[in-house]
Design a protein around this nucleic acid. Structure first.
Lengths: 214, 214
DNA sequence: CTACTATTCAATAAGTTTCTTGAATAGTGG
DNA sequence: CCACTATTCAAGAAACTTATTGAATAGTAG
């Protein structure tokens, strides 16, 4: 029994595979797209993905030429979150990183999911998704505007002037939203970041919109 | 960042270390005791424990000649539980085991923690802890009687005759309570098992009694 | 100070993981 | 059926993990 559990843990015990899992948490993608996004050779990405599949963390389906991978179920992001939380709390090396780089930016007034839901109902905020368009297309928060971080300065006028802006990205270890809020404030806008990212939102069972219409 | 997370995952990626973690979830213990319980040489156990410590999963303190290890915090059992749940759901090999050996025994009427709390208030059950005395001493459910599985037949008369017996052990993957219920029923007693074990009970913040008086 | 114990350290041999490379497979469009 | 593409497979070199051994360290009791 423990041997099997250890195999699953070991499947997560490689940074590239963790990276692939976080990418898969954004939605289904082909091997090629994943390899590209993770900065791996296709053969290598394929091998890592097979490890994830063999250990029940991901599943794949073939559609035409492409093989699409996705996470095998809801438990996987929960497991990833538990791993993050444990690692964060206990490894000093990580502790220093989190409380240096990230906590320095905590002044950016994180807004919890619940608070955000309330403010969206009031209509008092503009929701900004700063992830790349592919990820936005795969799924996003209802009503969100997509401006990838790198285009933000250029496309600033697409954001209504009067309202507060709430930015979100991939999750607690993604820096996109932090950068976006910093940028927006530098441009004189009132901006905050959402505490979590898209995967956590979906995980919480909250409504999601996607490009395909579904 | 991902590199650090991967290290933590990898620290759990060995069956002996998972076993040590489950033992540590029972309470603090010396290297020697852990080595003995896990069936490892002392040097080997020491090395595995150091891996756990280096990755923030366990901490140690020296008291006299002995070094005592324990889990580093609440997040660790949560992480272990998440790992179990994921592995259980998705690895077919485990699936077969769970639905063979364990589910065959599911007729042993598992009682949830909440139901148990209710029945304890009514006073309609005898609570039986079938773990070894050391683990019982380190902490147990309030009011529980400790009869290790191997002594159960011999000490049957210590259990009051009229009431239902609810047996518990180390947790969902521990077989002690299953065996105990089977044994008790074979002896004509009305017995059920508690769904989880002692670590889960403590994790849920429910009251715990221990030998030292604390 | 000496004998003794619990734990850790260091070295090594066997096994596993990882990345790279190039070839094999399977599905598509003409 | 052919050329083409996406993915997987296979083999090999380098880097890591693991269990075992025996020696080193640090604390206790006499």
């Amino acid at each position: 029994m423990l041997v099997q559990f250890a195999k699953v843990a070991r499947a997560m015990g490689n940074p590239h595979r963790l990276n692939l899992l976080e990418l898969l948490a954004q939605g289904e993608r082909s091997v090629e797209a994943l390899a590209e996004a993770a900065g791996l050779s296709v053969a290598n990405a394929s091998q890592h993905l097979q490890v994830l599949r063999r250990n029940g963390l991901a599943v794949s389906r073939k559609r035409g030429l492409h093989v699409y991978y996705r996470l095998s179920g809801h438990e996987v992001p929960i497991l990833l979150a538990a791993l993050r939380r444990t690692a964060e709390r206990h490894v000093e090396e990580i502790g220093r990183l989190v409380h240096g780089y990230f906590q320095a930016r905590d002044a950016l007034e994180p807004l919890s999911r619940d608070d955000l839901v309330g403010r969206l109902k009031e209509g008092s905020v503009t929701l900004l998704d700063v992830r790349p368009p592919e990820e936005f297309a795969a799924g996003h928060l209802p009503g969100a505007v997509n401006i990838p971080l790198k285009d933000l300065k250029r496309r600033l006028d697409e954001l209504p002037a009067g309202t507060d802006i709430v930015a979100y990205c991939r999750g607690p270890y993604c820096v996109l939203a932090y950068e976006a809020v910093a940028t927006l404030r530098a441009c004189g806008r009132r901006a905050r970041r959402m505490e979590d990212g898209f995967p956590e939102w979906r995980l919480a069972g909250l409504p999601v919109e996607s490009a395909g219409g579904a």
